[in-house]
Design a binder for these strands. Structure first.
Lengths: 353, 353
DNA sequence: GCACGCGCTGACACCGGTGTCCGGCGAGAT
DNA sequence: ATCTCGCCGGACACCGGTGTCAGCGCGTGC
């Protein structure tokens, strides 16, 4: 255009998409300053509508999108969301990622994954350095690292946005999403009691996980509705792993007054319980009912297909990213979607006789 | 220090870690220009060792790390690696992520996940916009999107580094990692033949996946070693899903000369085959041997535990990130780690009689 | 003793955005 | 018609790095 803007010669390259437009190009082509273009991008209110429209037209014409790096540099904050997790279950992780991405679609944010080891002595500095180096906009934490108060304290220092997903409110409402595991446990207890079971067993997750206690507490609530109680001898401590489910169930099934039904704290352990039943020569659900928690793929792959509690992990993920980047306005989804629900398959039945 | 550098007043904040050091701080504290610090960061050869050491000492003292955003802006390239995938299996995805992260640890790169839908009409522009907007350093593609030539052509245009993971060499050695599925299939065929099976069945993945053909081809190779052939009627086309495995096996088991062993193209379908056998009243491995592929968790959770081919997904991921960001020097790992291997469990046995 | 070459270093512009601040312009008051 | 006020938009510096290029100091050849 004018001799002061040498880049004008590249308009052909721009047009054809050979060169990505920058804010300078848009400003020049719209005949305004780059700051004004910036105002459009950032929805500044002090702009005459016609100016805005003119610039938006140019933006649309050249398919301009601001460079996240440059923007981030100026904002001192990137457009990245971190997922920090130590849950080793692949399906949980993937569902959570999908949920987060659901909420981030079209927002210009991207998802960076960051598995961690809660047992590591450098857990807090590692996460801190991840956040500060990348200047993350926000992070989502899932159990069990979400329950770590040392990590939480550090997060508050950094000024990075964060959401902690956990089975109880581990933080204020702005920083916490509750997965209502207690409700899920209740559904399991109610289901078994309604089938007529009176002697039931429970295989818990690790006691360091809040969800273990919530699921058990809810289970007892559900049983109690029907006058059934969970005897402490009928509780085995597991670790949310297949093997621990196998061992825990084997222990319970060896008792003289063995339970007629077992609630395993997750599907992995429930799968282990099915194996234990087989080893003990018991048929499921004839001799023993088994109910799991999560409704991951494995639940419908084992034999018999598992009755279980569906945990809405993907929906929770979506909720988490909505909370972080506040794409509000469409929060009219049915809150029931976020509640665990009972999925009845073939591993539960009334007790024999 | 000098009045021209007002930031000198903040040294206390720097010292205590309240403020992150920038290249300007390091330059000032080391008494050099920022460009020289930049030379240290980028391992420029033209630096006197003593200068380098002096600067490195200051960097270490203040725990300085360059800002990836600023660096990226200047380099016109971010320090992000994208994982582009359309494989819906959670364990594959997570293993791949873990492998990629293994190779990226300590490199300053981060992993951004980007699931996609190969069926989408906007697949290519979507991926392109992801890459260009974020100015990705590189991307890793996994099957089946890795086999898409339209995507590959676009990648070559962008100048972004890329690695395509596939069961055959879909690209030159710089851009391709081969998973040797054929070898895995061969192991399956050899195993069944060695057990004495002569009438065997195969449930393939979708024919649009190269791995389906590779696994079958290898299977036939393995059988042939022992003079066994795969009859075309004993092949069912599946879709790598549980249900398709169930259906495929049901079809094969309904044949008058039903096979005594079935190789399913992956574990999901093998789990379906186990269910089909149960529905048909057949015991595994007594009446029917079943072998899968992948060795995901499900393989050891079903009953009986599945004999399967272990696919070294995590190792492949590690290889991919090594190739992308070239943290060479430690490429002395046993190449056998990258080959599929046979895992014998309880779902295979010699045919009855 | 001087010109030359080379290795090392720094000044400056630039990457593509945003914050600050100030000037210009139109509408309403006098 | 002029002054004032408020809104709008632009010039400029800055975010934290890197590329370019010129200059400095030093050793070498003649």
């Amino acid at each position: 255009m004018s001799p002061r803007t040498p880049k004008a010669s590249d308009d052909a390259a721009l047009e054809s998409g050979r060169r990505r437009a920058t804010i300078n190009d848009i400003a020049r082509l719209a005949g305004v300053s780059k700051k004004t273009v910036s105002r459009v991008i950032n929805r500044s209110p002090s702009l005459r509508p016609e100016t805005r429209e003119k610039i938006e037209a140019v933006i649309a014409r050249y398919g301009y999108a601001p460079d996240p790096q440059a923007r981030g540099l100026a904002f001192r904050r990137s457009f990245l969301i971190g997922l920090i997790y130590d849950n080793p279950n692949p399906q949980y992780v993937v569902n959570m990622q999908l949920g987060l991405l659901d909420g981030m679609r079209g927002s210009g944010f991207e998802l960076v994954v960051h598995p961690c080891d809660r047992g590591s002595t450098t857990l807090v500095p590692d996460i801190r350095s991840f956040i500060e180096r990348q200047k993350l906009f926000g992070v989502v934490l899932t159990p069990s690292v979400s329950e770590d108060e040392g990590v939480a304290a550090m997060l508050r220092e950094t000024g990075c946005e964060f959401v902690r997903v956990a089975s109880v409110a581990v933080d204020g409402p702005d920083h916490s999403i509750v997965t209502q595991d207690r409700h899920g446990g209740m559904l399991a207890g109610r289901h078994l009691a309604e089938l007529g079971h009176r002697r039931v067993g429970f295989i818990s997750g690790p006691l360091t996980f809040r969800s273990s206690h919530e699921r058990r507490g809810g289970f007892e609530d559900g049983l109690r509705e029907h006058g059934v109680t969970l005897s402490p001898e009928h509780v085995a401590e597991g670790a949310y792993t297949f093997e621990s489910g196998l061992d825990g169930a084997a222990k319970l099934l060896a008792l003289p007054d063995r339970p007629t039904a077992i609630f395993a704290g997750n599907d992995e352990m429930a799968a282990g319980a099915l194996h234990a039943a087989r080893h003990a020569g018991l048929s499921v659900p004839g001799d023993l009912s088994v109910i799991g928690f999560d409704d991951f793929q494995i639940a419908s792959r084992v034999w018999p297909p598992l009755t279980t509690i569906r945990a809405p992990t993907r929906e929770i993920g979506r909720l988490a990213s909505d909370k972080l980047i506040g794409q509000a306005g469409e929060d009219k989804r049915d809150p029931a979607d976020r509640l665990p629900s009972l999925v009845v398959r073939e591993s539960t039945a009334p007790p024999r006789g």
